[in-house]
Amino acid sequence: MTRTLLSADTHFGHKSMLSPRMPRPRPFETIEAHDEALVAAWNKAVRPDDIVWHLGDFAYKCGLNYAASIKARLHGRIHLIRGNHDFGLGDRLQWAGPVVDVQRVFVQDPGMPERVALWASHYAHVTWPNAWHGDLHVYGHSHGGIPATRTSLDVGVDCWDWAPVTLGEIMARMAEAPATRSSA
């Protein structure tokens, strides 16, 4: 059965992600080690026939050929929701569908009784269409800086051991989160 997974903020080729000046520097010696670790984690989580929604910042500050060579090694049929670093480079890669800014994605996870509607965006939203009717929100961009709630969650690789995640994993983490973000 084909599964749907989600991910964000891989930043393939983006050397600055390793800089100690970053709020959350990634723990890799080189960008090549970073990229290889993310490819390995991706391919361990994703089967060739799976669908993956990448919620932005796929690659940055690298050449088109490099980004395309990384993408060609990744399992799954990948859709891109544009992030702030995808203008230009991400827009020029070949995806499983058109590049969009936001997308309502319906996911039927194996073992779940019904499909779930996700409002997917690169950016975290305070509210979103159908939020009061059961749609959940998934996003990237914050690199783990925005706490999860029972209805909204960061699916970026910084939060998930560098790999895309399934709806079951998302729902389990949301279930453990507070109902709303504190307004401290």
Rank of each mutant, 00 (worst) to 15 (best):
T4I: 10
V138D: 05
D35P: 08
A96Q: 10
W119K: 01
N130H: 15
E36C: 01
I70H: 01
H125R: 09
L38V: 06
R115A: 15
H11I: 05
Q108E: 10
A67Y: 13
T127C: 12
G13H: 00
P113T: 15
E169A: 04
D35W: 00
T2D: 06
D50F: 08
L64R: 15
R77M: 06
R82F: 02
W95H: 04
T127N: 08
D57K: 03
K44T: 09
M17A: 11
G140E: 01
A67R: 03
A33E: 00
K61V: 11
D161S: 12
A40P: 07
V165Q: 00
M17N: 08
E32R: 01
M17P: 00
G134P: 03
P164S: 09
P25A: 05
P98A: 14
W95K: 07
D161W: 07
E176G: 08
R77T: 08
D101Q: 10
T4H: 07
W132F: 15
M171T: 10
M174Q: 14
A67G: 10
G83K: 04
L64D: 02
V126P: 14
A184G: 12
T4Q: 07
M22Q: 10
A96N: 05
H133V: 12
A172T: 11
R26Q: 06
W42P: 06
H79E: 08
T166H: 04
R92A: 14
H125F: 13
F12R: 01
Y66W: 13
C159G: 11
S121W: 02
G83M: 03
D91A: 06
M174V: 13
H34I: 01
V102C: 10
M112A: 13
M22A: 12
A175D: 14
G88A: 06
H85A: 13
A120L: 02
T30C: 07
S121C: 11
I81K: 03
D57P: 01
G76H: 02
T151R: 15
P23Q: 05
G145I: 10
V39A: 00
R82E: 08
N43I: 02
S142Y: 12
K61Q: 13
D158G: 11
S183Y: 12
M174L: 12
W162K: 01
H141W: 10
A148M: 09
I146D: 04
D101F: 12
W42Q: 04
G145S: 06
W53S: 04
M1N: 08
L55W: 06
Q94K: 14
A72I: 05
G156A: 11
G168R: 12
D50C: 10
N130I: 15
S121F: 00
N65K: 13
W42S: 06
T180E: 13
A179G: 10
D101L: 12
K44N: 06
R21L: 13
L18N: 02
M171H: 09
I70M: 02
A172P: 08
V102E: 09
D49W: 11
I51R: 12
D50V: 11
